[in-house]
Amino acid sequence: MSLSPSAKLQLTDSGELRHFLTVDGLPKTMLERILDTANSFVVVGNQEVKKVPLLRGKTVVNLFFENSTRTRSTFELAAKRLSADVLNLDIKTSATSKGESLLDTLRNLRAMHSDMFVVRHSDSGAPHFIADQVTPNVAIINAGDGRHAHPTQAMLDMLTIHRHKGAFDQLKVAIVGDILHSRVARDQAIALNTLGCQDVRFIGPNTLLPTEAASLGVTTHTNMDQGLQDVDVVIMLRLQTERMDSAFLPSAGEYFNAYGLNRQRLAKAKPDAIVMHPGPINRGIEIESEVADGSQSLILDQVGYGIAIRMAVMSMAMSGQMQQRQSSQQEGN
């Protein structure tokens, strides 16, 4: 079987993870290993001493070209629990705004012998570009790029679903809201498909649904009541309020009327359906407080799983990257 370009870039010659850029192209067995590894780290989080020595002596650089305190904090915590040294670089207010190019910034960091970059960038494909052309020997973890991918968020959602619903193959999952601009939605859809889920639905107005969404293995619904019918999982996406300024939507009120999750709407789903949201939530815009804080909501559980998933992919990518370096050194000798 020939690998897709993104799979080739992310895997070592022997099929181990060396970068984590998108779930697109990764085999089912790899996603399952990430979930299994993360499951074991959930336990670590509950222990008195929360550290494991897997990344001792390694330097992880959080390269955030776009602000995100929440995501950065969970990556920082994950790296520290793996015993790595962590450097946080808020590039937006640092080098590139002084005219230094992305390329030069990265070359400088490489010269400091970093082992892993956790990258968030507003351009789709930026982590891809870094892994492919700039620093192939530094493990790259994508912490969100443009509207392309946010694979650790998608995998923590998979972990949440897996821990609460078990196997994926019988599940019906609805993803609701601003799919078009969401870096998470396409990774979620791809991960769900890869893990065996047969029924993934995108729900939103036509202005917020991407072109040819079916190519991601989903069906699309503009009517929320119909879309939620009998689903096991409802994933709500955050609505950026600037969407109203660029004619995607008329108003937050009208959006909530058509696509906000309230108790009546949730009743269309299965009685034991779970509700998820990547946070931070806009109460009264995409979700009603009663539902967000209700018994079916797993929104706070997701945060804890986020650290476990990030520990899993960081430790796996670091070990794959080390293997690749060793094998290419041996070839060089």
Binding site: D24, S124, H148, R183, R186, P210, T211, E212, S215, L216
Partner: peptide, 13 residues
């Protein structure tokens, strides 16, 4: 081009 690949790559079509 605004097609399936643009959707997959997250690039504006």
């Amino acid at each position: 081009h605004d097609g399936a690949l643009a959707t997959q790559l997250g690039l504006n079509g």
